[in-house]
Amino acid sequence: MRKTDSKKRHLHGDKVFHIINYTILTLTLILVLYPLYFIVIASFSDPVAINNGQIRFWPVGFNTLGYQRIFENRDIWRSYGNTIFYTVVGTTVNVILTMLLAYPLSRKEFVFQKPFTVLIMFTVYFQGGLIPTYIWINQLGLYNTPWVMIVLPAINVFNVIIARTNIENNIPEELHEAALIDGCNHFTFFRRIVMPLSKTIIVVLMLYYGVAHWNEFMNGLIYLRDKGLAPLQLTLRAILLQNQVSGLGDDDSMIEQQKAAELIKYGVIIVSTLPVLVIYPFLQKHFEKGIMIGAVKG
């Protein structure tokens, strides 16, 4: 990295530059963090205080009533469980299939390397579209089954490219040649060398795919009719954007529902986003690499 310049050469213009720069970045930090912080303190505050606009920097009327209601809400927990299932199974399938495809595509001598690359890239630019896919998923019998959430997004082309480029750059050709001389075939080479040496990229893939599954909304909206199969984001939408909180009994009036939604919405945001934000710092140093590798080849 560049050395910090010596003080005597510090031009006046540079001082102004740094002051402006720090000011902009600090304001941006506040702009990014404050909304998130507000949700956290509001989730512990009295709804009346929130309503009166009293919440600024600390919770007002500290309580955990919202969280208690969330714990009692069966819809939230069922969809939470569904999303955990979709995320765990889905990400496992994603990572296995992506690595299986990335390895052969990283082999320059592979007879189908070019055709297969073109074949998968084409799907980025041209798709059947909503209705043809919808009709086909129905014919396959995947409509309104949990499997649609796993099969439909099973491979992401950009992640394949990232993984392929990573294998190309990280595993020296000499290693492959040496392994071949030792009588190693592609299967053992993949298992013994490629997979262990691709730990970083596998973590990156897990993060990318995992977050995508966790935040998935559209496939659930289109392909799942049963409430029992609904992923978390669909339930969140009902509570946060449509003010529908069920599980209070059959005779919930509109006003009751709205009140309940008002009480739990901040807590629901926290509870639903927490898993992603908790694993995030641990994976943080890995995932940047992913984008950078992808950036090289686009």
Partner: peptide, 10 residues
């Protein structure tokens, strides 16, 4: 990393 549903509700 925040979902679109949460972003919209924010």
């Amino acid at each position: 990393f925040i979902s679109i549903v949460v972003l919209t509700s924010m």
